[in-house]
Design a protein around this nucleic acid. Structure first.
Lengths: 217, 217
DNA sequence: CTGGATCCACACAGATACTG
DNA sequence: CAGTATCTGTGTGGATCCAG
């Protein structure tokens, strides 16, 4: 947003001037998971017009939120990465995701779920405790993992072959993600399948606030 | 946003579809402080085109975020109020305000500070403790108060005559609001004046994470 | 193939005037 | 007070094209 100000001396207004334009926070969401190239961003946001993506990246770079880096040869690739300042938007994105997930109903036609979305969903619903465990979560082609060690969570795209619990989730994912269904019921309803015990699944569900009544078997 | 979707099965994307349009979160910010009439909203957002305000209110009402209520006679006034669902956006607005406040520099020409902004700034920087105190904060015409009782904070527009500490703040407010100046230095630099002790001011600064090194005298 | 730039059509925002 | 109407301009969407 170049000259489009809200005319308010206010943190909320300033934030919206910087990252309030269309697509900006979705680009940032994807960069919060990992640095990415232009093409990776396009792949994760298939509906973004290429000129809008290019414009946003320039604006975000100008605002000091994103840096554009050219990889050393031979790759020579151009990588977009969040600055520490931009990375501080994680709390904003997580709060938005928590709130918006409640309005997630059925997967609508033409709508996609990416690994970045699943990673942010896990991060936004994580509740620190004293559990130590590793998980792999699959949703069709999309595979992410989570490594929980007490207070800390590390979640990223990709499998985790040695995971304590591997979960296969099917659409609709929303009842699972926003607490309308508990883990045991989800298993029985065939919404998830797992190669672990129901107890392990319930522990997973509790860690990530999935399901209103995490049941142990 | 009626038919403008991001094509992503994602809480962040859904949230942005609901409240990501221009002015929407600023309207919500003001309604988080208190229910308001159309004219009150206009007064707090002088730069919003009236047709945009009307459109947003209709969209937010349709989305179940805002309700439109007609007061009983004789007032007959129309009041806009957040639903519980809409009120849950407080964490989003507070996170945005915290992040954006860091980019708040000088008060720019034509820019205004409202009571709603100050209230949200206090709420977003509050750190629970075991302090029990009341404050009145004045910034020109704008007056807000804060009542702290341990974990709980109640902050709203308007004075609080019996406040333990009354603070008069002058522009630029930003060094005070985003931690570039400590309370004692702010007092000495004439950025604030107070009818309380420096110790009380330092306690206020610490409660609201104002200033890097809350100094006691 | 990556990393964009260019062009066009249009919906939405901005500004202002007007009304029940 | 609480909006609607109208006009204009810019940002967005969508498609295509281009250079390294």
């Amino acid at each position: 947003m170049t000259t489009k100000t809200y005319g308010q001396y206010c943190g909320v207004a300033r934030a919206l001037e910087l990252v309030g334009e269309r697509w900006a926070l979705l680009i940032i969401r994807d960069l919060l998971v990992a640095p990415k190239r232009y093409t990776d961003l396009r792949a994760g946001l298939p509906k973004i017009p290429t000129n809008v993506l290019a414009t946003r990246l320039k604006e975000l770079e100008q605002a000091g939120i994103v840096t554009r880096r050219v990889q050393p040869r031979p790759s020579g690739a151009i990588v977009y990465e969040l600055t520490p300042y931009g990375a501080d938007l994680d709390q904003v994105v997580l709060a938005l995701g928590r709130w918006g997930a409640r309005s997630l109903g059925e997967l609508r036609p033409g709508e996609i779920a990416t690994a970045e979305t699943l990673v942010m969903a896990l991060r936004s619903t994580f509740e620190p405790g004293d559990v130590k465990a590793t998980y792999e979560l699959r949703f069709g082609e999309v595979v992410v993992h989570a490594i929980v060690d007490g207070e800390s969570l590390e979640s990223a795209p990709g499998p985790l072959p040695a995971a304590d619990l591997a979960i296969e989730a099917y659409a609709p994912l929303s009842p699972l993600l926003n607490g309308e269904l508990d883990a045991k019921a989800a298993l029985e309803a065939g919404i998830v399948s797992t190669n672990g015990s129901v107890a392990a699944l319930a522990r997973f569900a509790k860690l990530f606030r999935i399901g209103p009544t995490p049941a142990a078997d």
